[in-house]
Design a protein around this nucleic acid. Structure first.
Ligand SMILES: [Mn+2]
Ligand SMILES: [Mn+2]
Ligand SMILES: [Zn+2]
Ligand SMILES: [Zn+2]
Lengths: 129, 129
DNA sequence: TAATTAATGCAACCGAGTTGCGTTTTGCAA
DNA sequence: TTGCAAAACGCAACTCGGTTGCATTAATTA
């Protein structure tokens, strides 16, 4: 495998992801780093950051791809995402609920590789009551 | 709301979904009912079947949308999908694991509406050992 | 059988993501 | 410091899943 290089565009994208409290899509990220690089470059940067275990990809309930920082992963250099994601039907934001971990039990002969757990609903910010 | 009508295209799509042991995408479904209707019609039929609670939409781990029959839903006329989905990284098929139900506990002020629980791995058919 | 309108076909469009290729940068070593 | 290999980039073209508008067809119901 080739050794990764650091560029200002890559750093800009990673900064935006780290700064955000919720997961961001490529269009959102491109909007935020506009001027630093081409939109295709954002796609390629995201792929690299995922490969380097710096961020992880979250599929929202409507199929849109979003990217969030790896919090617990990088410390032990392993990529375990057995945590919940919350997708708000109001503000459309999807966030990691790192604290809530879930273990499930499968029928036999099913080999688990990764968990994708997303809950759709209304986030605290969008509560009206 | 307008009352739904039954057409042969709609019935053909529903038959394919009911017949299948795993969830099907629009392109797959269009391929299977080819000749009976236009590809746009398949999209509209799927939207209607979802609205009528006859099928449900499953987002796969790569963001592709798939459709599966509602097994337990239609009997009690409610749409609860708190069951697991299994997505095989070999054959790419995604299926409902209706038996395995999971209840999770959220932080306060999060209002749950729907659960999307998908496990990625290797299905029994694709096991080599 | 006629009227109402849900459903369809078709063409055009949209947006996320990909690919190819020539050019620019980065990191490292001479 | 400079030179080099290849990682990263810009740009244009493309793919593909999905949507929209509108005129036409067909399912229901009286
Ligand atoms: Mn996460
Ligand atoms: Mn299901
Ligand atoms: Zn919200
Ligand atoms: Zn399989």
């Amino acid at each position: 495998m080739s050794l990764p290089r650091n560029t200002k565009a890559k750093q800009a994208v990673l900064d935006e992801i780290n700064r955000s409290t919720y997961a961001l899509s490529q269009p959102e990220l491109f909007e935020r780093v506009k001027g630093t690089c081409d939109r295709v470059t954002v796609y390629r940067i995201l792929d690299r950051l995922v490969a380097e275990n710096k961020i992880h990809r979250i599929v929202n309930v409507d199929g849109t791809l979003n990217y969030a920082a790896c919090i617990q992963c990088d410390t032990h250099n392993m990529h375990a995402h057995d945590h919940l994601h919350f997708s708000c039907i109001e503000c459309k934001k999807i966030e990691c609920l790192s604290e809530q971990s879930v273990q499930v039990q499968l029928p036999s002969h099913y080999q688990i590789k990764e968990l994708f757990l997303t809950i759709s609903g209304i986030c605290p910010t969008c509560q009206v009551d």
